[in-house]
Amino acid sequence: MPLLRVDSMTHYFGGLRAVHNYDLAIEPGQIRGLIGPNGAGKTTIFNLITGRYTPTEGKIVLEDREITGLQPHQIASLGLGRTFQNLRLWRHMNVLDHVKMAHYSKITYGLMGAFFGTPKRTREEAEIEDESYSLLELVGVSHLADQIVTNLPYGAQRRVELARALATQPKILFLDEPTAGMNPEELAQMMEIIRHVHAELELAIFLIEHRMKVVMDLCQVIQTLVFGEVIAEGNPDEIRNNPMVIDAYLGKEVEV
């Protein structure tokens, strides 16, 4: 029984077919990769599953519940967290507030609590703050909690974004190029953090990556997407040796 299942999803932008007959089944605890050349539709698939766009055809099921057509915030609160390719942090907010914000759907104190500062609100926000701190510790940036995000180095911003996504308490975490723009040292640290988070929180991870090393090291199953269609699916070795993948994506001269 997969955690997330996508059945023959197809999407058109106007007349352009961006995704065709896409299937996916992610098991609990699995780390999956999605690779493919630029413009293959990887981020579109993320956006379709997370509710940014509604697929033209197809069905998305998260733990027995169909989530096709739900609003992004509904899907997110059902347990599908994500990060973005180009960090979308909130410019004027500090690190701690970022992580606290992602607890939004868990809040029960309501507007009256927000307006009048009821004891229930104080208690709830204190609990959220504690949880947020422990998430920041998990990704190793708790010492930056009161910094405004725009003042942080890039690597730290990536970690904040990861902590924020974890704060939505996802069952599956979607990572859109988590190591984009990182230097080798930051890269190694990020991979370590992803492994650590995966082990610690026992969640499934679905990631888009350009760097083969990252995908091959982390993922158990990898899909290769070209022009909106999956041309190959399998474990790292299978993908590495699949002639179609090498032809379409990796190119012959690339050493994997």
Partner: peptide, 20 residues
């Protein structure tokens, strides 16, 4: 409050806000 700061999140990045 977090509910109020959600306004800032909406302002500074609506897409990230509803993904969170």
């Amino acid at each position: 409050s977090i509910l109020g700061k959600a306004l800032n999140a909406v302002r500074d990045g609506e897409m990230a806000a509803d993904a969170m």
